[in-house]
Simulated scan of single mutants.
Amino acid sequence: MSSGATELRSLRSQFPEHRAQLGLSLRVTIAALSGFAFSHLLKVPLPLWTVLTAVVLTQATFGRSMKATVDYLVGTLGGAVYAGVVAVLVPHSNDVSLAGVLALAVAPLAFLGAVYPSFSVAPLTGVLVLLVPRFVHVGPIESAVDRVLEVSVGAIIALAVSLLVLPARAHSFVIEGAARTLDLMAGSLPELFEGFIRPRDAAAIARIQDSIGEAVARTQASAAEAKHERIVFLAAEPDHGPLLSTLTRLRHDLVMIGLAAAEPLPESLQARLGPLLARVAQTSADQLRGRGEALAGRRDPASLEGVEAAFDHYAEAIASVGSEGLTQGLPVDALERIFTLGFALDQMRQDLRDLDRCASEIAGRRSTPARMHAGAVKAN
Rank of each mutant, 00 (worst) to 15 (best):
A262R: 15
H171D: 07
D183V: 04
A344P: 08
V44K: 02
F343R: 15
S118E: 13
L250V: 04
T248N: 11
E150D: 14
G75F: 05
D351I: 04
D346M: 10
S323G: 13
G113V: 05
E229V: 01
Q220E: 14
L335S: 05
V138N: 11
Q21R: 08
I157Y: 01
V115T: 09
L341H: 05
L345P: 05
E191N: 11
G78E: 05
V86Y: 00
V70D: 13
I157M: 06
L24R: 07
D346G: 13
L295Y: 02
I175E: 05
A179V: 04
R272S: 13
V86M: 14
F339G: 14
L243H: 00
I318V: 14
G4H: 08
A144P: 01
V307N: 08
H18N: 13
S188P: 08
P264F: 02
R337P: 14
G241N: 08
R272M: 05
A315F: 06
V280G: 09
N94Q: 12
G154T: 04
V70M: 12
H252Q: 14
L8K: 06
P16W: 09
V96E: 11
P242Q: 11
G292N: 02
L345C: 11
V90K: 02
L102R: 09
S2A: 15
T6S: 10
A37F: 08
Y116V: 15
A315T: 08
R298L: 12
Y72R: 13
A236F: 08
L11Q: 12
S25D: 01
A262N: 11
D351M: 08
L22S: 06
L259H: 09
A281D: 06
T6D: 15
G195C: 12
L42W: 07
L41Y: 02
S13R: 14
G23N: 04
L22A: 13
V280K: 01
L46V: 10
A160V: 13
Q350A: 10
A186G: 12
A236D: 15
G342T: 01
H137S: 12
R64F: 07
D351R: 03
D356W: 00
S2Y: 06
E316D: 13
V377W: 02
M66I: 09
A296W: 01
G35Q: 03
G75H: 12
V332N: 10
L164Y: 02
L247Y: 04
L254Q: 07
A262C: 06
I175P: 01
G84S: 07
H18G: 10
L259T: 07
L41D: 10
P275R: 05
R200I: 02
A374W: 07
P45C: 03
T61M: 04
E237D: 15
L189E: 06
A32P: 08
E176H: 00
G195L: 07
S143R: 09
L166R: 02
S360C: 12
G84P: 10
S120P: 10
V377A: 13
K378H: 13
R272A: 08
L24P: 11
R353P: 05
I205S: 07
R251P: 11
L276T: 01
S39K: 00
P266I: 05
A226L: 03
Q270D: 01
I141S: 05
L345A: 12
E361S: 14
F196P: 10
V127Y: 06
A204K: 09
S93Q: 15
